[in-house]
Structures are given as structure tokens and as C-alpha cells.
């Protein structure tokens, strides 16, 4: 029975014929290879009363390419926070670079600024930080209990993407053990903000997602 399943699986995978593009790296034609291409999104408890949001973009940067990597001043990164379970953002955090500085606005009400197009929430509280150059110690900006960072970092994502591609391509039927991390030694451009839970709903569950928006 198991043998049958594996044979069936191989046939399925051959028919499937898709190339796997990792967490969200270069996953869609319109954004792959652009400064708006999100590679990953993380949200976790940092300090016990705070949540950390991480948006990584521009994946697979080699160490040689990393000193020249930069944030695009025409790309707005938007963290969306839904506090009532309807998958519509109630709060937003905006991050946008200008002249070597990353400006973070919010968390602030998403009222009038939900959906696929909008404007920078520049009327809300701002936290700023100098973008950390490659090779420098991390600059950390603070505003009350909010901390922010922007700059190149090691890509925290790990996966044997190459082997997955071989499996999907019908050239292999199983993962290797141990596997090889395809993202080892590569960097991303990271935007990180840590905010008090009290500013994003306090208790219960939130739904979150990240967008890059361009003008």
C-alpha cells in the first residue's frame, strides 16, 4: 500500500511540475527580483509584553552583493494587524526609507487606509532609525517602548530547497538526511519593529500579514 502511494506520488509530482520558490522568495512574476519582493514574514513574542514583526525583502543576496543592497524609497512596507478576526486590517504599521533613514509610523488605526492602495500614515507617531550599513553594528531606534531596525541581515529562512526542486522535478523521491540549507550564507534586507502588545490589541489573537506597496 505504501509502495503504491509512493508510485502514485511520483506520478503526481511529475504532473505537478512546479518549481518551488521557498518561503516567499521570488514567488510571483510581477515582483520577483524587485525591491518589493518579500521573502519572509515573522511575528513572535520578544520581551514578554511585546510582539516583534519582521519583514524581509530582496532575498538571496550574496555577501559580495550585500554592501550595495539598499531599500527603495518608492516601496512602502505595511504590517497589517486584524484584531477582530475578519481578516481586514484594524491597525497598520508603515515603514518607508528616505535618505538613509527608515521612518516607522504607528501602530495606528487603519481607518481609511485599508486594502490595496493607500497613503503613508505620516500623521501618526513616528519612530526613526538610521539604516544600518553592511558591516556595521545594528542601529536601533526607540520611541517609548517601541524599537526599530532596518538593514541587511542573515536570511533566517532555512530549507533544502534544491532537493525539493529535484523531488518536484521527478529527479528524486525523498529528501536527503541530513539535508543542505539552500539559504546558507545569504542575506536579506530586514525591517524589524517590536511593539508593546497593549498597542496591538492587548490580549487574544491577532491576524497579521505584510505587504509591500509601490508608487
Amino acid at each position: 500500500m505504501k509502495k503504491n502511494k509512493l508510485g502514485l506520488l511520483t506520478a503526481f509530482l511529475l504532473a505537478f511540475g512546479v518549481i518551488f520558490m521557498a518561503a516567499d522568495h521570488i514567488e510571483a512574476p510581477a515582483v520577483q527580483g524587485t525591491s518589493a519582493d518579500i521573502t519572509d514574514f515573522y511575528a513572535f513574542e520578544g520581551d514578554s509584553d511585546k510582539i516583534v514583526f519582521v519583514a524581509n525583502t530582496q532575498g538571496l543576496l550574496s555577501p559580495a552583493a550585500s554592501p550595495d543592497a539598499s531599500f527603495d524609497e518608492n516601496v512602502l512596507t505595511e504590517f497589517n494587524i486584524d484584531t477582530d478576526g475578519d481578516a481586514v486590517e484594524d491597525l497598520i504599521i508603515h515603514a518607508i526609507p528616505r535618505d538613509g533613514v527608515m521612518y516607522f509610523f504607528g501602530p495606528t488605526a487603519a481607518t481609511g487606509n485599508t486594502g490595496l492602495s493607500g497613503t503613508v500614515a505620516a500623521n501618526s507617531d513616528v519612530t526613526i532609525v538610521d539604516i544600518t550599513p553592511y558591516g556595521s553594528t545594528a542601529n536601533i531606534g526607540t520611541n517609548g517602548d517601541i524599537s526599530v531596525f532596518a538593514g541587511p541581515r542573515d536570511d533566517p529562512f532555512f530549507m533544502d530547497f534544491a532537493r525539493y526542486g529535484e523531488i518536484i522535478g521527478g529527479m528524486a523521491t525523498a529528501f536527503n538526511d541530513p539535508g543542505a540549507d539552500t539559504f546558507a550564507g545569504t542575506n536579506v534586507m530586514s525591517i524589524v519593529i517590536e511593539v508593546p502588545k497593549s498597542m496591538i490589541g492587548g490580549t487574544g489573537n491577532i491576524n497579521t500579514w505584510v505587504e509591500t506597496k509601490t508608487r
Partner: peptide, 17 residues
């Protein structure tokens, strides 16, 4: 603050990996 005016439109988005 710098001038951040303009309309921004979604290019990429992501929730779960």
C-alpha cells in the same frame, strides 16, 4: 518629516510561509 505623499499600491503580500 520628508514628503511621503502619493498613492501606494500593493505589489507583494504574505502571511504564512
Amino acid at each position: 518629516l520628508p514628503d511621503f505623499s502619493g498613492t501606494f499600491t500593493t505589489a507583494d503580500q504574505m502571511g504564512r510561509p
